[in-house]
């Protein structure tokens, strides 16, 4: 029995030594959400698009601003994508961009736009005030539903009628000589300008 007793003692020592130093590995796994990546890239693009409003070299400004935004992405938090500008069109009444974001595990496109289309336009002369009253019927197209806010430069915004399907009837008063402009800003911050 001496051998068994000695074996017991050795076993107890081994067990105690293992218990003193816990050698278990704890592995944590995390997943990256595609929706989160889409949304983050959407805001990157949108912010750069808002930035270039009113800038002359829109393509150059867009690229440099987007690159500066990408420099702020921390790879420990979110993988920094490779971005290719596929399409960028900035005119007065239209702002549109399409980008491709490439990551190790996914490739996706972001397409953002806001377009204004004049559906109807009528002008009345007000002889009492010697002013013109312009009625514009404008339809807006966007990649997602947005609220539109209006401002008139060199004129007065008289009334806005919100019709169906992002269409608005806008009444503007302006002097005979002035070239008024209607600035439409959506709830994201994108702006387009329409000459009245």
């Amino acid at each position: 029995m001496n051998y068994t007793l000695t074996a017991y003692l050795i076993c107890m020592l081994l067990v105690a030594s293992i218990l003193i130093q816990p050698g278990m590995h704890i592995i944590s796994l995390r997943s990256e959400g595609l929706e989160k990546i889409f949304a983050t890239d959407y805001w990157l693009t949108l912010n750069a698009l808002i930035y270039i409003y009113g800038k002359e070299d829109s393509i150059g400004e867009f690229n440099s601003f987007l690159n500066s935004e990408l420099n702020f992405l921390n790879p420990r938090i979110i993988e920094v994508p490779n971005v290719t500008v596929q399409y960028l069109n900035v005119t007065g009444s239209r702002i549109e961009v399409q980008l491709t974001f490439r990551r190790q595990w996914t490739v996706h496109r972001i397409h953002i736009f806001l377009k204004a289309e004049i559906v109807d336009r009528s002008v009345k002369h007000n002889p009492e005030r010697n002013e013109l009253t312009v009625t514009l019927k404008v339809k807006f197209y966007s990649d997602r539903p947005v609220h539109i806010y209006f401002k008139v430069l060199d004129g007065e915004l008289l009334k806005i009628k919100n019709l169906v399907d992002q269409t608005f009837e806008i009444y503007i008063s302006k002097s005979l000589q002035s070239i008024s402009r209607l600035v439409a800003t959506d709830s994201r911050g994108l702006k387009v300008t329409i000459n009245v």
């Binding site: 944590s28 995390r30 983050t40 912010n47 750069a48 930035y51 409003y53 921390n74 979110i78």
Partner: peptide, 15 residues
Amino acid sequence: GLAASTIIVGVNGTV
């Protein structure tokens, strides 16, 4: 638990 995290660089054309 684990946090879902991301960076938003800016809004309204700002950084």
